[in-house]
């Protein structure tokens, strides 16, 4: 149980896909102009990630090594399309505001990266927790990015006016340069926290045994 929790935590802070592994950044910059979009994208990616990891982990013995990439892609694309259709049917407003980024989950590096690096080698339960951890790690980063960008760039949160009307929105934060700035500042905060966490729990057994990729610097930056 502790091992599974370690895997789960791994994705949230220790090996956060955005702040530490630094993959899948393009969509994170594009959708975080509003908090609602950030949450929607996070949930969408978590769904695709968890489902793809579980399925691929369950069938990992039946996927020949030489065609693993096309098979992964088929599985990921199927789940992305399912989610895209479900969103169009039941959350049309969200689907409209995220536009092309939902179908683009197919080529999101996080999904492909975790499936290749983790799920294709680990048992189902571990993969499930890895997917949840990574998905949640992605989601919280999107939300904190979006909170700052929407609040300062538009004066609202979740579409509701928060700052007084006299506040002139700083459109800079909604635009890509503002996104990069907010992202880098948050990354600095998160990584200083992560360093403290890792030095304090140096003899932590979970981090050493749980992860397929104990040293994040070896991960290929996709």
């Amino acid at each position: 149980m502790k091992r599974l929790f370690g895997i789960f935590l791994n994705g949230i802070v220790v090996e956060n896909p955005l702040f530490v592994i630094m993959i899948g950044l393009c969509s994170s910059m594009a959708v975080t102009t509003t908090v609602a979009n950030g949450i929607g994208m996070g949930v969408a990616l978590t769904f695709v990630l968890v489902m793809s990891e579980v399925i691929i982990s369950a069938f990992r013995k039946f996927i020949p090594d030489s065609i693993r990439m096309p098979v992964f892609l088929v599985v990921i694309a199927a789940f992305t399309t399912i989610m895209d259709l479900a969103m169009k049917a039941y959350f049309p407003a969200l689907s409209k505001s995220m536009g092309v980024f939902i179908p683009l989950v197919v080529v999101n590096c996080i999904v492909m990266g975790r499936v290749e690096a983790f799920a294709s080698k680990q048992p189902v339960l571990d993969s499930l927790f890895d997917g949840l951890g990574m998905g949640l790690g992605y989601t919280w980063v999107l939300v904190v990015l979006a909170v700052v960008r929407e609040l300062l760039g538009n004066g609202t949160l979740l579409g509701r006016q928060i700052l007084p009307a006299s506040f002139e929105p700083m459109i800079f934060f909604i635009l890509p340069p503002g996104g990069f700035l907010v992202f880098s500042l948050w990354m600095a905060v998160s990584n200083s926290f992560r360093r403290k966490l890792l030095t304090r729990s140096k003899p932590e057994p979970t981090t050493a045994t749980c992860c397929a990729l104990p040293d994040s610097s070896t991960v290929e930056k996709a």
Partner: peptide, 17 residues
């Protein structure tokens, strides 16, 4: 093998669609 995976994927998508 690859076509088998594609087939299953297609059937699932058809059902959802």
């Amino acid at each position: 093998i690859l076509s088998a995976y594609c087939l299953v994927g297609c059937v699932a998508l058809a059902a959802v669609y």
